[in-house]
Design a protein around this nucleic acid. Sequence first.
DNA 1: CTGAAAGCGCTTACAG
DNA 2: CTGAAAGCGCTTACAG
Lengths: 331, 331
Amino acid sequence: MADVGAAAGVTSRTVSNVLSGNKPVAPATRDAVMAAVRELGYQMNVTARGLRTGRTGLLTVAVPALRIDYFAELALALVDEAERLGWAVTLQQTQSDRERELAILGGHDRLLSDGLIFQPHALGPADGDLLVSDQPVVLLADHPLHADVDQLVLDNVAIGRAATAHLLGRGRRRVAMVGPNHDPGLSTAGSYRQQGYAEALAEAGLPLRPELVVGAARWTWDGGAQAAQELLASGVEFDGLFCGNDSLALGALHVLQRHGVDVPVDVAVIGVDDTRDAAHSTPALSTVAIDTAGVASRAVGLLVAQIERDDAYAGPTTEVVGHRVVRRSSS
Amino acid sequence: MADVGAAAGVTSRTVSNVLSGNKPVAPATRDAVMAAVRELGYQMNVTARGLRTGRTGLLTVAVPALRIDYFAELALALVDEAERLGWAVTLQQTQSDRERELAILGGHDRLLSDGLIFQPHALGPADGDLLVSDQPVVLLADHPLHADVDQLVLDNVAIGRAATAHLLGRGRRRVAMVGPNHDPGLSTAGSYRQQGYAEALAEAGLPLRPELVVGAARWTWDGGAQAAQELLASGVEFDGLFCGNDSLALGALHVLQRHGVDVPVDVAVIGVDDTRDAAHSTPALSTVAIDTAGVASRAVGLLVAQIERDDAYAGPTTEVVGHRVVRRSSS
DNA sequence: CTGAAAGCGCTTACAG
DNA sequence: CTGAAAGCGCTTACAG
């Protein structure tokens, strides 16, 4: 930068002012500096700028795994929203590994960035106590964590209840569920959604039949296909199927149809998330839509407000993320 | 860091050595330092470390748009591969905007990172001359750029030829194509794949019928659905359909089926990319698979070799990315 | 509007 | 194995 200044007949301060635009510079000086920049092929050292200003222009987004459609769509929505506000996003996957998630909470394993949006997967509510971070944080979670930070939380019990109630409302009386994950290490949305499922059945005065509930270790298309196989193989009768997410539902849908089950006549199916694929299946998949774009916009908004010490930022809040049933042809 | 040293009875140099692991430190000293770190809740300033070492641990991946399945899968494969080697990835979208792509080539609009993997979309071969970068770069492209850097290039003509030849090999004689994009600003893969299509027809001694070629401005599911509508509405007969990518093919497949067209009996369909959705449609979609994982691994490998000045790195190369026809039920 | 200088928080030769 | 000090390349009060 000093070299550029020398070539333009000014000091590095003026070069800095021209390049950053922080302070006004006389047009002639400005042109001379830009000419020198071009001639010397000067490119600013962004790391040095970052050290000085305390800003990197980067946000970190940490999710369990990008191979899971929901997290991929969430991450990409966050990238879009951040970009709109002039920030770039660095992606980090935890693979639902508890140690890794604790390291992120604890502020170790820190990437170069000004703030963190973190979706834990293997942490319980009490683990929030371990949040020690001197950097701005927004948590996205399946349940509130015991931590004094911004949190956007899904109401998974309500989601499970809404999905199940929808199928009951379509006249189904033997509604099966695919999804609960009893891995003790993972506090997934599965058990909360299962609770909602049970509540909806109870509200309708219907019995909870354990044989209608099939677990799925991984919430993927293959997991859903396998669960549907199991359900069909068991010979148990069912006329409705609530799947923990859309990936499971699409896999299940495929298997049901291959076995000659008419969806929705024989079995009505509903998923959760409203991923892009849901609208494209045949029949198109009913689902409980989670407002991913809304989550992304709110999460980035809160994080940037923290980073920029926005006056309008009133301190940590815990907000519940909205959801709504989207009825399509599968139910 | 000096404070931590004071609390542990050493200087910042020793704290640095303990934290970085660069130099051996006596166990007792080491423990004292770690204790002080914990007690003071010290978290290293990664930006300062970056300025000093000249490394950020970050790679930038710039693609046209993450809403396009192929680029999303490519970007996520790059994230996976980078993570495997201990690097994190910052994502940047160009929206196929020529100015933005030129800014990236020119080294302006630079993010904090040690290297760049860049898939241009609006640049012609000659634009490569504008590549002025003092940072390591790997280009992923639809055609070689005139630049002395590492490039991984698709052979799009061969891909179009292979897809079309596959349909011809299945006995089809009136093969339609969806995809060419005649937007002069975009040097997409479309025109190359169309050239391959034409070559395959010529090799089989079949005429090129312009009425069988339908453009698609956006290579999305909706774009494919719309193109199929047009094709059906035009009343032209066809028994094979080559789509520029899988998203187009899945949209077209949906519309064909909704209009009672039996795939593959009436019309055999093939796409390109082998995105995850291709295997999940009914019927499962035939496609020309691009070795995305291979591209990701090679791209990250080349970039890291440049960054680390690996002795095994022999200077810029241009390599052709592999592809192969995957036959499924749609053809 | 511009110069000369301090300092952001690390790492690393230079000594011991 | 550790201390004292320089320096990475910027930005920004302090002066003028």
